[in-house]
Design a protein around this nucleic acid. Structure first.
Length: 617
RNA sequence: GCGAGUGUAGCUCAAUUGGAUAGAGCACCGGUCUACGAAACCGGCGGUUGGAGGUUCGAAUCCUCCCACUCGCGCCA
């Protein structure tokens, strides 16, 4: 508007930043880069629309009076073109209130520029490790978070112009899978018609009976327990050993590409993955076969990984195993067992090599639960030690573990069914969909409801969108590192800061726009008169910065908080400012423009969260 | 034992990453519809930010020491 290069932006904070920065630089005779005015939107309307907090720190550094510095800066910057008021308050805050016409102009720019979001091309892609299912197990609540948080981040990066590789690192290799295969064989299960329940049971049984109670046996001997107890444990030990021996044979056959075993292996993968993709679709996440790259994909690279660590002197032998040491901690990381087998750390090293060196990712984000913090610290440090984090063009790739908290039951312990088993994801989603559908159906019974004439199929479709929104939003709306209690009653209450509340605001706007008819926005211009209109305008314009910040901080809950504020501000506006019944045509068309903009914004924001925005609900 | 994470209103969570009087929702109390969709809006009640020190113009946020809970700690993934 006033200075070069900032005409395109719709962000008031950016414009104010530039004007004040230049003024600070001029007053202090310092480089602009060192003069961050610290512009923030004001929390309290009494403090104007925006505040700049930088004067205190800059004055302090130079032994100046902060209020005086702020006064000089205001005079120098001459904000009169964009602001109706700019004043110094408190110890040296600069409070700025924009002209209504400035906001109107910025809203126009915002509306015609893809909601203010810049999506430039980036040199390198980003890889996001998400979902992470085991091919012999049903998905359970633990996968919920890894799936939806990962997918949301992927959507946000894509919105900002990045190429994103969603990496579903399947547990499809190694002894546990071999144990399951061998158990299925022993039990004579027909693999062509196998169900996920069979598979799940086989995995569980294999794990249980294969558990070698060697420690118990040794303890029994040491404490001279009776011969009966020792014999009992000995039998258990022997049968476990037999089971493991059989599994190892299967593993060897699998590793040797034995046609029969490989064919069985593929059958169980198909069986599990069909349901995984179904669940991902129900959850409205963009995770399909193209995202799958399991541990088996890296099986040929593991020995090379270990060799290279050994050759470079970064790994040593210890008790027959190969370990990597770190300078700043005692605990080494095991990358090869004494029996020659590899561990998941080895696979993760190979996967990182692939993601950085082959895919060229400049960021690799692991959306994995918080208990694996130490593991990822070790793996990332190892990659840095060996230098695999440096791309061919010298860019240093960032490896980030985004640790998320546990999903708890009402007893504040990890969520389990009454019989102590994990809830399957399917059960959970079905319950949410049923509850959502029930809510939609109840409301559709009201003759005044816009959904009153809807048939069962329509009600069910909307009910699913609402139920899934309730679950996803509840998960995404608090800081990911925290544990949370899974309480469907609260999630489906649809009051306050919930997904359905935001969907509702969107649906209401759709109704208004439809009633206004096509063409109602032709030639309309924004007018900012009422306080609710000003508040809404300021809120809308924050959007691009919020999306940017969420991408940087990896904190999706901030997008939720923001969308809730938008919906809330819209509701206040809607209450105070009649749209279709506005007093005059100019006001009516301006308010319709607000409706249109907010509708687009909410729809776009919900899409970033992977939440549908029905037009009726 | 060592390491990590968390601790904010009765409950569930925020707090623009060091900014002004710590904000929302639920619950509770009181107002708003012969409807631009009340899944909404407006107002009220509710706080020693686990505790004690420290850093500075200014701390829920940074530093130190305690307390509570949770998680992790070499041949599982």
């Amino acid at each position: 508007m006033t200075s070069q290069g900032i005409q395109e932006t719709s962000e008031p904070a950016l414009i104010i930043d530039q004007l004040l920065r230049t003024a600070f630089a001029s007053v202090l005779d310092a480089p602009a880069a060192e003069c961050d005015p610290v512009v923030r939107s004001s929390q309290n309307p009494e403090h104007g629309d925006y505040q700049a907090n930088g004067a205190m720190a800059m004055a302090k550094k130079r032994g100046m009076n902060p209020r005086e510095l702020a006064e000089q800066v205001i005079r120098c910057a001459d904000l009169s073109e964009i602001a109706e008021k700019a004043e110094v308050a408190g110890p040296g805050f600069i409070n700025i209130t924009l002209h209504g016409r400035t906001l109107a102009h910025l809203l126009d720019t915002f509306g015609s520029s893809d909601l203010g979001i810049d999506a430039p091309a980036h040199d390198h892609p980003i890889a996001i490790d998400l979902c992470g299912v085991n091919i012999a197990k049903q998905m359970h609540v633990g996968h919920l978070r890894a799936t939806i948080i990962g997918d949301t981040l992927a959507r946000i990066f894509e919105r900002l112009g990045w190429k994103v590789h969603r990496e579903n690192h399947l547990g499809d290799w190694g002894l546990p899978i071999a144990m399951t295969l061998s158990r299925l064989k022993t039990d004579g299960i027909e693999l062509d018609s196998i169900t996920l329940e069979d598979l799940n049971a086989a995995y569980r049984d294999a794990q249980l009976s294969g558990r070698d109670d060697r420690a118990g046996l040794e303890a029994a001997r040491r404490f001279e327990c009776g011969p009966h107890r020792i014999a009992e444990l000995q039998v258990q030990h022997d049968s476990a050993q037999e089971e493991i021996d059989r599994a190892k044979q299967t593993l060897i056959a699998l590793q040797a590409s034995d046609a029969g075993v490989v064919s069985d292996w593929k059958k169980i993968i198909d069986c599990t993955m069909r349901e995984v993709y179904d669940a991902c679709t129900t959850l409205n996440t963009k995770i399909g076969p193209e995202a799958s790259r399991g541990e088996s994909f890296y099986r040929d690279k593991l020995s090379g990984v270990v060799d290279e660590f050994v050759q470079k002197g970064l790994a040593r032998e210890d008790d027959g195993a190969i370990v990597v040491d770190f300078e700043d901690r005692e605990r080494p990381m095991l990358i090869r067992k004494s029996d020659g087998g590899y561990l998941y750390a080895t696979t993760d090293l190979a996967a990182l090599f692939y993601r950085i060196q082959e895919l060229g990712s400049e960021r690799v984000i692991y959306v994995v639960d918080a208990r694996q913090r130490d593991h990822f610290k070790d793996v990332f440090d190892s990659i840095r030690l060996i230098g695999w984090d440096v791309l061919p063009d010298g860019t240093r790739s960032k490896m980030i573990h985004l640790p998320f908290g546990a999903v708890l039951g009402p007893d504040k312990k990890p969520l389990k069914t009454r019989s102590g088993e994990n809830f399957t994801l399917e059960q959970l989603l079905q319950e949410a969909i049923d509850r959502g559908t029930g809510e939609v159906r109840t409301r559709a019974e009201d003759p005044n409801s816009p959904t009153h004439q809807f048939d069962e199929e329509q009600v069910r479709r909307i009910g699913q969108a609402v139920g899934i929104a309730a679950i996803k939003y509840a998960d995404l709306s608090s800081d990911v590192v925290r544990d949370y209690v899974f309480d469907l009653d609260r999630m489906v209450a649809f009051e306050g800061n919930t997904g359905p509340y935001i969907q509702y605001a969107h649906a209401r706007i759709c109704s208004i726009l439809e009633k206004a008819g096509a063409g109602a926005l032709e030639g309309a211009t924004f007018e900012i008169a009422e306080p609710q209109e000003r508040q809404l305008a300021l809120r809308i314009l924050e959007y691009p910065r919020i999306v940017q910040e969420v991408a940087e901080s990896l904190e999706p809950h901030r997008l939720c908080t923001y969308l809730y504020a938008v919906a809330n501000d819209f509701s206040s506006f809607y209450q105070a400012c009649p749209v279709l019944k506005a007093a005059d045509e100019a006001t009516r068309s301006s308010r319709l423009k607000f409706c249109d903009l907010v509708r687009r914004l909410l729809s776009d924001g919900l899409d970033l969260l992977g939440i549908e925005a029905p037009e009726r609900m």
